[in-house]
Nucleic acid binder design. Sequence first.
DNA 1: GAGCGGAATGTTGGCGCTAACAATTCTCCA
DNA 2: TGGAGAATTGTTAGCGCCAACATTCCGCTC
Lengths: 363, 363
Amino acid sequence: MDGDRAPVMADVARIAGVSHQTVSRVLNDHPNVRAATRDRVHAAIRELGYRPNAAARTLVTRRTRTLGVVSFNTTLYGPASMLHGIEQAAKQQGYFVTVAALAALDRRSVLDAVERLRDQAVEGIIVIAPQTTVVGALANVPPEVALVAVGCGTHASLASVAVDNEAGAERATSYLLDLGHRTVHHLAGPRSWLDAQEREAGWRRALESRGAPVFGPLTSGDWSARTGYEHGRRIAGDPGVTAVFCANDHTALGLLRAVQLAGRRVPEDISVIGFDDIPEAEYFGPPLTTVRQDFDELGRRALRALIEMIGEAAPSPHHAQHAHGPSMSRPPSGSPSLARPVIPRVTIEPSLVVRASAARPRR
Amino acid sequence: MDGDRAPVMADVARIAGVSHQTVSRVLNDHPNVRAATRDRVHAAIRELGYRPNAAARTLVTRRTRTLGVVSFNTTLYGPASMLHGIEQAAKQQGYFVTVAALAALDRRSVLDAVERLRDQAVEGIIVIAPQTTVVGALANVPPEVALVAVGCGTHASLASVAVDNEAGAERATSYLLDLGHRTVHHLAGPRSWLDAQEREAGWRRALESRGAPVFGPLTSGDWSARTGYEHGRRIAGDPGVTAVFCANDHTALGLLRAVQLAGRRVPEDISVIGFDDIPEAEYFGPPLTTVRQDFDELGRRALRALIEMIGEAAPSPHHAQHAHGPSMSRPPSGSPSLARPVIPRVTIEPSLVVRASAARPRR
DNA sequence: GAGCGGAATGTTGGCGCTAACAATTCTCCA
DNA sequence: TGGAGAATTGTTAGCGCCAACATTCCGCTC
């Protein structure tokens, strides 16, 4: 009458003629199991279609092998790609990835998402949500939670992996200046995003270091083509505008469209440079010169950083005298003194991809 | 010397002056707990920062409240959006979502991903990977696994939620025909994708039902702008081509570019229609007429369908005589006879978004 | 005020697994 | 051949929680 409930370790043990502990040892690759025994156990496992119970294992080992990813909008190209990179790397390291989308952009939502993930006992968390509010909220997360922010600017006071937005923006701006433009206008991204702030800073720095006049920037509420389009209509008639550095490729697309509708040509009348290098950028009209960032790599690096943080906090089994919930903990501060903990920070260099949307100005 | 290990239910019980079982009752909203007691327990929980141990709970309830999502490329707009919709809906239903990306497109990878998810004891799986191979491989997944395919065409023999690609394609094609084009060429998506096949079928059907000649289709290996560009260069010179229905918006973008580079104008010389309605489509040059599908909704519906399947298979606690691992099971077949199980299938209608890339042909 | 029934709480027994320790083999050399 | 010591296997005791059953408490009725 036992029904056919899923087989457990004891069932395997019975069939293989060993104790359940031996089965456990086989499963965990312990040494000191005779080859013949191991084979018998494996055979029994196959015969029964046995699958270890993850919950039971977690209960005793205190390891879930699960990582959490918090993100705001996985629909955007950047976040989606980073998630992809993270998942790939996680699989390779034997970790599961569970995602928690932010319902809104306030502190509360961020903390909620983190709580949700903690309830599920993830061993660490990666945050893909480069907004100032988010980074601010993250400061409230207790330090025993292993946390890495990815693409969240390079100045946040937490472990992070990010592209050097400032350098990328500076490079793009300088490129336009070198082409002979008197100045470069900037169509900035949303102020609430750190990337946008940093790109703006890079643009400004390039201008200032060359003594070029600084106009603007043109600010916007999102990263969409619509925004680019609207600003484009406004500036297309201005003869003083000969070069525009856009905060991302989508706004560049919208700008391109507006400028051309207004009867001005790119790059002959106006040069445009974007940021991101989305796959379509090459097929814009004209093909977009842009700053490339490797999102996939960003994701992989973030994961690697997180794994390291987790690894440092020994995942002690509960039998030992563990000092804390062994899953989730930031690396200990370098010294027991008041020194601030060392915050791992990785920066990746972006590169300028030259295509056809920027040229020397007409005289 | 106890260290400060994470508090457990017994700790809460001690502080609140009750038994751990009463704490459990409070946590699970059981009736028959005096209000005053409940408050004391809640206070103790807060004081200790107690967080229930998910693994322990899972061990006894046999519920993980976790769903798995298998996907191939979350970088594409469609899949990314669907994932987003799924996550939103899952959160609302109190489920976690863990993702498993496919390493490659063969059967083996698909089955691996499913296994990975099953190892983690997900209660059900949503598959976002509309390739024929994937759907084929899915047939090998044991029937006790609750499985829903999303955006995987409408003909697959498994529970699915999908847009009616055929109807959408037919609508787009008919629209062009109605405009006065003698025929419509089709830039098809990759053959291995069901969506591509169905869109092609819809295109063909529209043509045939009007007695219009069928040329092509132009086939391609992926959904990228590059593909559209390459085909565009080939057909731009052909005066017989006055209207092209593209399998998706990205290829349409590439096509647009190629056609215009060749000196022909859209829509005056050639009309173009896409599929998907990505956010940027409105800002292409010209704004793209396209078939809109609501990916977000697709994701939400898929989740709903999955939850229903899971719900039907009673998640019996292990004390009762359960017939199988209570997590993960498809709905029972309608009758105990040999009749095939009823496969839930949801179809969503796409709509044509008319913008500026299609017009009547010049005579 | 004894007795009854239901509400509120406590006690006990696993869920399936791993770690520690105990017990049993083997191996090999004195 | 008799062990010493290593290799292999088995036994026991939880991990933190929920469900069943047992017990206590309370408000009533007669």
